[in-house]
C-alpha cells in the first residue's frame, strides 16, 4: 500500500514521497526503511516520520535492542576474557569492551572494572555479522559522560520510552530537575540507570519515568507535580 508521512505503516508498504524527494537531493533513510530497486519499502510496523529537510524513519514500538553505531548504551559486564570485557547490552550477542578503552588506562594501569559492573558506553562498531564493540572514551581519549556507573539502580523499558524522555520537547526531565537531586543515564538499548539520595526518591524517579510512557505532555507535568507533592509530604 502507498503511504505518506504521519501514517501508520506496515512492512511492505511503499512510500513514493521519499522516492520523489530522493530525486532532488540527498535523503537519509532511518530505521525501518529499506531501499529496493523499485522504490523505498517499509520494513517495520509503526508511524512514518519525517524531519526537515530530508530525514525519514519509522517510529515503532520495540523492546529488543539492535546495536547501531554511535549510540550510548548501558551494559552489564558479564565476563572478563583476557584483555577484553564481554558486556551484555541486550542485543543478540554480547559486546566487547577493551580494557584500554577507558580514560587513563594503559597496559600497566588497568581500569578497576569487575564482573557485574554497570557501564555507560558508546557503540563503536555495530554490524550485522560481527560482535559489537563498545568504548568508554571519546575520540580525544576523555571519558566525558561515559564510564562505570557506581551505585544507583538499573531498570529496563521499551526503546520508545528512551527516545521519548530524551526528546527536548518532553517535559518529564524539566519538571523533575528542580524537585530533588538525582542522576540519570539513559541507554538507547532500553536500560535506564538512576541514582538519588534516598530510596523514596529513587523509587519516585523510576515510577515517574516508567509512568510517562503512555501519557501526553500535560499529563506528564501533572504527574510530576503529584509525585513531587507526595515526596515532600504534602499529599499522603
Amino acid at each position: 500500500m502507498k503511504v505518506k508521512v504521519g501514517d501508520v505503516v506496515l512492512p511492505g508498504d511503499l512510500c513514493e514521497e521519499i522516492v520523489a524527494a530522493g530525486e532532488k537531493s540527498k535523503v537519509i533513510l532511518g530505521p525501518g526503511l529499506k531501499k529496493e530497486v523499485d522504490g523505498i519499502y517499509v520494513s517495520k510496523a509503526g508511524t512514518l516520520r519525517k524531519r526537515a529537510p530530508n530525514t525519514y524513519w519509522v517510529d515503532n514500538y520495540q523492546k529488543r535492542y539492535i546495536p547501531a553505531r554511535g549510540e550510548n548504551v548501558i551494559g552489564i559486564v558479564a565476563q572478563k576474557a583476557g584483555d577484553i570485557f564481554r558486556v551484555d547490552v541486550g542485543g543478540s550477542c554480547t559486546a566487547s569492551l577493551s580494557y584500554l578503552s577507558f580514560e587513563g588506562a594503559t597496559k600497566k594501569n588497568r581500569p578497576k572494572v569487575v564482573i557485574g559492573d554497570v557501564v555507560y558506553a558508546k557503540m563503536l562498531v555495530a554490524s550485522k555479522d560481527m560482535e559489537p564493540e563498545i568504548v568508554c572514551v571519546d575520540s580525544h581519549g576523555k571519558k566525558g559522560r561515559l564510564g562505570v556507573l557506581e551505585d544507583g539502580f538499573v531498570f529496563k523499558c521499551s526503546l520508545n520510552l528512551i527516545r521519548k524522555i530524551l526528546n527536548p520537547d518532553c517535559p518529564l526531565i524539566n519538571s523533575l530537575k528542580n524537585q530533588w537531586p538525582f542522576e540519570l543515564a539513559a541507554g538507547m538499548n532500553g536500560r535506564i540507570w538512576i541514582k538519588a539520595n534516598t530510596l523514596r526518591e529513587t523509587i519516585a524517579l523510576g515510577n515517574a519515568i516508567l509512568g510517562s510512557e503512555y501519557l501526553s505532555n500535560d499529563e506528564i507535568k501533572s504527574m510530576c507535580t503529584n509525585i513531587a507533592g507526595i515526596l515532600a509530604g504534602h499529599i499522603s
Binding site: I28, P31, W57, A68, R69
Partner: peptide, 10 residues
C-alpha cells in the same frame, strides 16, 4: 541519493 542510517540518534 539515499543514505541508510540504522540508528535513531541521527
Amino acid at each position: 541519493n539515499f543514505i541508510s542510517e540504522s540508528s535513531f540518534i541521527f
